[in-house]
Every structure is written in C-alpha cells, then in structure tokens.
C-alpha cells in the first residue's frame, strides 16, 4: 500500500486483523446466502412432504415443523396407497435399466478407449475426430431416428408393451458413450508407455494388459464413469417417456411427472404433500450415493470441464 508521498506505509497489526475480519465476514456471509438459496428447494421439498393439507395451504408459509406435527403418512400414501402411482415398481425399473446400461457402457467404453489409447490402426485419428465431432450434434437428432428404430424393432408396442421390450428400448441405445470413451482414453493415455513395453517383454497379451494393468490403474476414472452413468439413468426422463408406453414400465422421473400431471386440476394442496414425498423418495437415493462417493463424482465433473 503506497502512500501519496511515495513513502511506503505499513498497516499496523490491528489494521491487518480488522481488514481480514471484515473480508472473511463478507465472504462467509455471501457464501452462506447462496448456500441457503441452493438448499431451500430441497428443504422445502422435505418440509412440504411432511405437511398436512391445511399447513400446506397456509398463506403464511410454515417454515419449520415440530416432530409431532410431521405427517409421515404422506410417504405411506405416495408409496403404497392403491390409487397412487407404483413408485416401488418404478424404482425397480430404474435400478434395472441403470444396471444394464451402466454395465454395457463400461464394457464398450473400456474396450474402445484401450484401442484409441494404446493400439495403432488405420484411420485411428480420423475415426476419433469423427467421434468428437458427433459430440457437437444435439441429442434430438439421434432421438428421433432411435425412436423410429426401436419402434420398428417392435419394442414400443403402443398397446400391451412387453417388459423386456421396454427394458431393451431403454438400455440398448445407451450402452456406449462417446464422451466416456474420450474421458477414459485420456486416463489410459497417462499410463506410461513403458508399462506396456515392460508387460510385452514379460509376455503379457494385450487383453491381459488391459485387464490387469490398465483397468486397475484407471479405476478411479472407471468408478466415476459408473456413478455418473448410473445417476444419469436415475434422472433420465425424455427417452423413457417416449419408449415406455405402459405406466408400469415408467422410470422414477416419468412416474413422478405423471403423478403431478394427474393432480394438476385437482385441489392441489390435498396432494402436494404426497407429491413432495414421492419427489424426496426418488431424490434421496441420489443424495446418499452422492454423499458416499462425493470425491469420485466431483472429481469426474470438474475434470470433464477442464478437458472439454
């Protein structure tokens, strides 16, 4: 801090402390404010899911609930009431679809990422460039024809759709991902070439090398891909909405949305508690997975941003 007359003046110890306190107070206050903005919708979801209709309809919103006022019945009604959507079934569907598409994705991704990272073949650069270029194309371009394709395969019967058809239609188009291939290839490329040469000298076959050396080394990335892919399926809405024609084959998001649409013209406050209960039920597993595997998820996302 240079003073006017060109003499350098130093802050006293006290001034430094005051400045620092002011600054940190500001930063923590504003961060807390934004954190509240982020949390409020989740809080509101939980809060509302535990309210009775009259509390929901209160013109001055109820901000807190005492335990004895909590209406856990909303959860029961959302999940088990005979007239409510079958969320248990939707969750089972979603888990099945997520498992199948994730296993499929990881297999195709590992194999092709290895080819791109490690093997020499004709048109490698060209093919890779082509893949990168397709990432620029909006998904709707694919969705239209893919809908046609699965329809022609007979998987989207408008009446009496069979379960395995619905599952096939929801998984097969998502069993590979150019983005994950690209992502994993980057990790594979970081494995020093010497490891491959050393393995060659020791007589390791390519597939053995991939399985015993590359995959274990790239495990963090592979786990990240597994989680992101599974979470993506859990949150999927558009595609299942198109190809699952029977309500029983809904995934969770579709079930939730159908529920909301069904009550749109009913007295809402009667049902919003149940609706929020259902919303929280399908949000909760994601939150659990997120808190358990935070590191993998956050690292994966921030890296995907850097690499572009």
């Amino acid at each position: 801090m240079s003073a006017q007359n060109n003499e350098t003046t130093y802050d006293t110890r006290r001034q430094i402390i005051v400045k620092r306190v002011v600054r940190y107070t500001f930063v923590y206050t504003i961060l807390t404010f934004f954190a509240l903005l982020v949390i409020i919708p989740f809080y509101w979801m939980i809060l509302t899911s535990l309210m009775t209709p009259d509390k929901i309809a209160s013109p001055v919103p109820v901000m807190f609930l005492r335990f004895r006022d909590m209406q856990f019945g909303n959860y029961y009604e959302a999940m088990f009431a005979p007239e409510a959507p079958d969320f248990i079934r939707y969750m089972a569907n979603t888990v099945l679809v997520a498992a199948i598409s994730t296993v499929g994705t990881i297999i195709t991704t590992i194999l092709s990422a290895f080819a791109f990272a490690r093997l020499n073949f004709k048109f490698k650069e060209l093919f890779f460039l082509l893949l990168i270029a397709t990432m620029m194309i909006p998904g709707e371009m694919f969705v239209i024809t893919n809908f046609i394709t699965v329809s022609r395969l007979g998987w989207v019967e408008m009446v009496g759709q069979q379960y395995h058809h619905a599952i096939l239609a929801m998984t097969l188009p998502f069993m590979t991902s150019i983005f994950y291939i690209f992502f994993l290839r980057q990790t594979f490329k970081q494995v020093p070439d010497e490891l491959y040469y050393a393995a060659k000298v020791d007589g390791t076959k390519d597939f053995q090398y991939l399985w015993k050396i590359m995959v274990p080394i790239a495990r963090p990335t592979i786990i990240t891909i597994l989680i992101l892919n599974a979470m993506g399926t859990w949150n999927a809405f558009i595609w299942p909405n198109l190809v699952a024609t029977r309500p029983a084959f809904n995934l969770v998001s579709n079930g939730l949305r159908e529920f909301a649409t069904a009550i749109e013209f009913l007295p809402q406050e009667e049902y919003i508690g149940q609706q929020m209960a259902a919303a929280f039920v399908i949000t909760f597993p994601i939150l659990v997975v997120f808190f358990l595997l935070k590191k993998h998820i956050m690292r994966g996302v921030s890296r995907s941003g850097i690499k572009g």
């Binding site: 919708p41 979801m45 949150n235 809405f237 919303a279 939150l287 997975v289």
Partner: peptide, 10 residues
C-alpha cells in the same frame, strides 16, 4: 446430481 423433475416440482 438431483433430479430436475423432482426439484422442478419443488
């Protein structure tokens, strides 16, 4: 990480 449909309803 959370579901846009669920949070959208909230």
């Amino acid at each position: 990480v959370t579901n846009a449909i669920a949070v959208g309803l909230a």
